[in-house]
Design a protein around this nucleic acid. Structure first.
Lengths: 209, 209
DNA sequence: ATTGTCATGTAGGCGCTGTCAACATTATAG
DNA sequence: CTATAATGTTGACAGCGCCTACATGACAAT
């Protein structure tokens, strides 16, 4: 009994996969129009159900946002994981992960914002765990980069934390600030500037790189 | 003809200082309850005017938020400026400014968020200038710390940028993340952890510190 | 002082939203 | 096969941003 909407032929009373489609539509709205445009009624409209249907899957708007925040950490972890897939050098791999973080933020500003504002609201332990799962990828990468250089992993979690907040800052500030105004370097993009500063920091923090 | 509300005796048709009071009440709501609670009608209620009165001073809600973002950069610049007032050592002064940024974020999360999300919306040149005014304080501090060490100010704006995005990241992530989970150090607070990581980075980036 | 103009505040209404309660339909377990 | 739980619909309510029409008063020109 197929009732997926993919073929959009059947129109049964029960939708069949509403929660997933709500999340997909929600992510789309969030990405394209921002948090203010993310409304349960618009969501219902897009998916083709009544305005109250979403309440069967999310207690309220906050819970929808929380679900999207969770999805954000999962997608972030995946992006980080794939970033250095075919790079051998651990230092380059770390660098690729950091740039992947910034790229994720660039393409998912609103989601990145809710990811951390939701965490700050401290409503969900699950969300915190998802965040830690993503972050542990960074810690590991720093550790590998250090141990490849033959030295013990000194302060490697502190360094990872520092790098994390740094790329997060770049991701958040990047779209708004004209970095050339600040760090003149012929005529490079915000990404280039971020990369340059990041490399500079990396070289300072882990001398092997 | 005094008609300030401070003594709340007079009740004239015209308020006299509505825009200022709206901003004050708005900042209070923003700080205590967050952006979602910042509504023009609630604002009007608190100040004691009709629900449409605020529209004589702000074209719409976004413009109110923009004004609060501008106010945020002014308060941030002031906080940074006062941070190292009675510290002589340039390195310590820089460090104090960085910690002041984090402290500002801790006490003004919602405002800090709108400051940069509003900048990202690129609606106001004035706002960008205010941001640059605040940031230039950081650049100067880095420059002084470098030149005191007797060496040329190499990359000093890049370094300032790196530090900026870093403390911004700390300010945003700090309230949400349990840093001890990540960077175990007996049992220190998030602030302590931030300070430790910051000092570590500082020492790497400007060897004089 | 009188008057006209303009800034500022008020009253009421529109369409949107989140949320709830009551009801309809279907999946599914026993 | 049938009760029951899960899921979707309808209709309502209050609060919101924002608009228009109107009221009040500050102030400058006469």
């Amino acid at each position: 009994m197929v009732r997926r909407r993919s073929t959009k032929i059947e129109k049964s009373y029960h939708h069949g996969d509403l929660r997933r489609e709500l999340l997909e539509a929600g992510l789309k709205i969030l990405t394209e129009e921002g948090l203010h445009a993310l409304t349960l009624r618009e969501l219902a409209r897009r998916v083709g159900v009544s305005h109250a249907a979403p309440y069967r899957h999310f207690a309220d708007r906050d819970e929808l946002i929380l679900a999207l925040a969770l999805n954000g950490f999962e997608r972030l972890a995946q992006a980080l994981g794939e970033a250095g897939k075919q790079i051998r050098s651990p230092e380059r791999q770390l660098e690729a992960m950091l740039m992947a973080y910034i790229a994720f933020g660039k393409g998912n500003m609103a989601q990145l914002t809710i990811m951390f504002s939701t965490i700050a609201a401290k409503k969900s332990e699950t969300l915190l765990e998802a965040a830690m799962r993503a972050f542990s990828l960074l810690i590991d990468a720093v550790g590998k980069a250090q141990s490849k250089a033959g030295r013990p992993k000194v302060n490697h979690s502190e360094i990872a934390l520092g790098l994390w907040v740094m790329v997060h800052g770049f991701a958040i500030l990047g779209p708004g600030i004209d970095f050339n105004y600040i760090a003149p370097g012929s005529s490079d993009t915000a990404d280039d500037t971020a990369e340059r500063v990041l490399r500079l920091t990396l070289k300072s923090l882990l001398p092997s790189a």
